Simulated assay, not measured.
Amino acid sequence: MTNTITTKFTDEYKQQAPQYSELLFDIATKCKPKTTLRVSKAKEVTESYFKHTGEAMDAESLEILADMILMDELLDTHPDKMTRKEYPIMSDSQQEERYSGEVDFEWASNVGTNHVDYTISTRDNLRKRRIFVGSK
């Protein structure tokens, strides 16, 4: 990452904050700097913004900066990531994939450890089974 990016905000600071954040994110994705440098750049931009405006950056800009800092963790697509790392962070796509295989707790509470559903069968229960398990 370069040291020449300006962190001075003008009167149009509300439009500049997302632009600076996206610029830093783009540079970070291309250059792949160390995490400490990404943290220092994000801190520099947020402190400069606060010094100029007296208020915190908007949520969108802060989220972009957070994604830039956590880039290594979010780009790790290894399928065994959750067991390899002590505190893994899932990306949005990994979170969607994980939740797609989960079933409703109310429905799962009636299924034994032997995978037998002990609910009294009615049309409604069969419909739920088809929805959650995908069986016919």
Rank of each mutant, 00 (worst) to 15 (best):
V116W: 02
V103C: 10
L37Y: 10
H52Y: 12
D26C: 14
T46N: 00
G112D: 15
C31S: 10
E97T: 09
F25Y: 09
P18G: 04
I27V: 11
S48H: 02
E60F: 14
R84T: 05
K34G: 15
D104V: 05
Q16L: 03
I5M: 07
T36P: 02
P88V: 01
E73A: 12
I5T: 09
V39N: 03
K30C: 04
R38C: 05
K51N: 10
D76E: 04
I89Y: 03
E22V: 06
N110F: 13
T4M: 08
K81Y: 01
M1A: 04
K81N: 03
D11E: 14
T36I: 12
T7K: 07
P88A: 00
S48W: 01
V103R: 11
E12D: 10
L74T: 04
D67H: 11
L23Q: 03
E106P: 04
N125M: 13
E106Y: 07
E96H: 13
H78Y: 06
K136V: 14
M82G: 04
T35Y: 03
T4D: 15
N125L: 14
V103S: 11
T35G: 04
T77Q: 15
T83H: 06
A42L: 01
M68C: 12
P18Q: 06
T77F: 07
A59C: 07
D80E: 10
E96F: 15
L74W: 02
K41D: 05
E12C: 10
L75V: 07
K128A: 04
R127N: 12
N125T: 13
A42Q: 00
K136N: 13
M82T: 08
T53Q: 01
T36D: 13
P88E: 01
Q16T: 01
T6G: 11
T83R: 06
S21F: 00
V133Q: 15
I131R: 13
I120C: 11
